[in-house]
Amino acid sequence: MLSYIIRRIAYAIPILIGVNLLTFLLFFVVNTPDDMARLHLGMKRVTPEAMEKWKADHGYDKPIAFNPAAEGMAKFTHTIFYEKSIRLFLFDFGRADDGRNIGADIRQRMGPSLAIAVPGLIVGLLVNITAAMLIAFFRATYIDAYGVVLAVAMMSISSLFYIIGGQFIFSKTLRLVPISGYDTGWDAIKFIVLPVVVGLISGVGSGMRWYRTIFLEEIGKDYVRSARAKGLSELAVLFSHVLRNALVPILTGVVVVIPLLFMGSLITESFFSIPGLGSYTIDAINSQDFGIVRAMVFLGSVLYIVGLILTDISYTWVDPRVRL
């Protein structure tokens, strides 16, 4: 088991190097520091001095990958590649364009992101699975047929519509919760409720349909027939046999997204002005702060790979037949 985990982590290293090289290529080779400086200082009438100053201020004034002017190892370390890309491996993200420390900002913004994402995931899972089991119980009846039609219709509505509609109805018209914002401690609850509910509604269509397929697949198996044959009621079959076996595909599908919860949701956070990592990213995109975008790309891929490894481990945990 341990050797498997070590092997998986070793396998993750070339992937992270690949991600790093790719982002480096995108941000510094396709798009040179000169371009970046010009973008930030305005396209027209930029003096070379101003550009040099901007580059020096933000640490982009070194050669890209090889510094012939320096001595020894400094030939490689006094370069943009070393300072901006290699340091990502040590989770040293450097400074944003406004001079703030990106690493500190990320740590600080993780909390609000999780405060939205974790309840959202749990409530979503509970509701989706309950709804899917209800529909699977009434399979091949009108309830099933209309349920699927409803799910497809709900899937076809843009997530933006749910957010805008939710804010309009619950905050603007009914005035139940504040429209957007965030607070610390227990006061945060009134800001969290609406995003979680909206996320639940916008995900219930596809979620319910997905879990329904999983349940129906399990219901078609032989062990379900034997359970019915020995006289168990349909409800008992559903809960003690089908649900337990269906948990294997459900759990493995969920585990892979757990680490990515840290990243937050771009759209939800920015609509509800929650100071999490999602809105951090969106602000960085809008203000074209490449340093933050690069850090988030790297963080995202690390978390994704962690998710993959956790998925493999959880397989062995829920299904003893799987040996690593």
Binding site: M296, G300, S301
Partner: peptide, 17 residues
């Protein structure tokens, strides 16, 4: 490698460029 980069961020980076 490509799928481990969050999709929106890859799109954002490419469109910015």
């Amino acid at each position: 490698t490509l799928s481990s980069i969050p999709g929106v961020l890859l799109i954002a980076a490419a469109v910015l460029i």
